[in-house]
Amino acid sequence: MPRVGVLALQGDVREHSAMLAEVGAEVVAVRQVEHLDGLDGLVLPGGESTAIARLMATSGIRPVLEARLHEGLSVFGTCAGLILLSSEILDGRSDQWSFAALPLAVRRNGYGRQIASFESVVEVKGIGAIPGVFIRAPKIETWSSDLEVLAMHDHGDGDHPVLVRYGAVWGCSFHPELTSDDRLHRLFVESL
């Protein structure tokens, strides 16, 4: 049974944890540096990226996770988690940092403020149609040609990637954990 952490500093930790347990992972809530030990994978949940970034710095998790990412730890970031894994943040705070584990630039709230938050259907390669819940979602604006794009979505301004993979690092701009469809979590856990 793979041991999968969920970064539990802030955000929708409970939904991710429940879904990971459902697809057969042993789930660990990661609040302190030592909780990162012995993990096969880690999920960075949705939440507020500025708050999570600050709490990762004050808890000392940031440098250790950075090292683990370099060593090849499998990490899946949704929404705020995608922002934290990106190489460049557009419309973020001037001092906002990220792990640069995914070769893409992401625009915070790129799909608009809450009033524009939406549900749609996302076509995922190898899986098929899954529900996509986009909440103040980040938009992937530019990306490297060697990034594996697992799903594109057109919200009226052309196709943008919404689910991507770069080696062991996965990111998506929507919230599979808020639905009852666990296929993405299953895919991630099976890859470990």
Partner: peptide, 9 residues
């Protein structure tokens, strides 16, 4: 969903 994202904050 937005309220869910604010949890723990």
């Amino acid at each position: 969903g937005l309220a869910d994202m604010l949890r723990g904050g």
